[in-house]
């Protein structure tokens, strides 16, 4: 009985420790989203002032405008392409990280991988401007090698944004894949080869299926970050690119149409949420299959 009481008292203590964070999360994460949801159903007047009346006007605007729908589609497609390309590049990078024989090589690769993670997104985006600008690094090198006469215009398009995204987001994909890879028993590769399968086909028949958890984890994070970021596209692609986060930012900063921005935000959340849920569902299905 005494033991029981003591146990209960501990539980009380743990709840006491947890309480401030719960209050904090409610106050500054849950309530802001509730307010934002509320905002997305408000009307605006001709001067974009938020009214006290509620309607579906903002959502109607989002879903009736073909430009808006196209933007949603392009945003998801760009995020999808970014995620696929990033994950494709992540495999060789993760392989090197996991199978590097010398520990100093592994440490070096780790440092290269983590530095961008800890460096501000705006700094990395700026670096890409320095690389790709008219008088940037690549144009200088190409001109001095006489490959081109006139500097190329490489900024302000979607491809550039995707390239920069890949660089910024690659570590998020490499790390979960590396974790999955290092969990694979090396004798599985040997078993496959002893059964006559070449190294490359062993990768597709054994390694790739077994890194699905890492792949999906990487995909989810890269996809949601790519779909939700406006810094990189704004700096490298310009304000006019048809990307939803850019559009939301414009609505807030230039148009001051907060209700429409809120409605666009929930559209973005829903779009990302659907894709992410699908991948989570796939992951669960795969795990269920593995365990029979």
């Amino acid at each position: 009985m005494r033991r029981f009481i003591k146990n209960q008292r501990n539980k009380g203590f743990y709840w006491l420790l947890l309480l401030p964070s719960i209050l904090f999360l409610i106050g500054f994460l849950v309530i802001p989203f509730v307010l934002l949801a509320d905002l997305s159903f408000r009307d605006v007047d001709a001067y974009m002032n938020t009214q006290d009346t509620y309607s579906f006007a903002q959502y109607a605007e989002v879903f009736s405008s073909s430009t808006n729908l196209k933007t949603v589609g392009i945003t998801l497609i760009v995020a999808f392409i970014t995620a696929i390309l990033t994950l494709t590049l992540a495999y060789p990078a993760a392989y090197l990280l996991v199978y590097a024989k010398r520990s100093f090589v592994r440490t070096l690769l780790y440092i290269i991988l983590i530095t961008p993670l800890l460096t501000s997104m705006v700094v990395l985006s700026f670096a890409w401007i320095v690389i790709l600008a008219q008088n940037g690094l690549i144009n200088q090198i190409l001109v001095s090698l006489n490959v081109i006469d006139e500097p190329l215009s490489m900024l302000w398009n979607m491809q550039t944004v995707i390239v920069a995204y890949i660089q910024v987001l690659l570590p998020f994909a490499v790390l979960p894949i590396a974790t999955s890879l290092s969990d694979i028993d090396p004798s599985l590769t040997k078993a496959s080869m002893s059964l006559g399968e070449s190294r490359i086909r062993t990768f597709f028949r054994v390694i790739l299926p077994l890194t699905i958890p890492g792949f999906i984890a990487g995909f989810i994070i890269v996809f949601s970050l790519a779909a939700g970021s406006y810094i990189t596209p704004l700096l490298l692609g310009g304000r006019l690119l048809p990307l939803l986060p850019l559009n939301i930012y414009q609505q807030v900063i230039q148009m001051s149409n907060l209700p429409l921005a809120a409605a666009l935000s929930f559209t973005l959340l829903a779009g990302v949420g659907i894709v992410v849920s699908f991948f989570v569902w796939m992951l669960n299905r795969w795990e269920a299959r593995m365990n029979g």
């Binding site: 934002l36 949601s224 939700g228 406006y230 939301i248 930012y249 935000s265």
Partner: peptide
């Protein structure tokens, strides 16, 4: 995970 642009306007 939440798109930062959304978190941004919410806050």
């Amino acid at each position: 995970m939440i798109p930062h642009v959304v978190l941004g306007i919410a806050l």
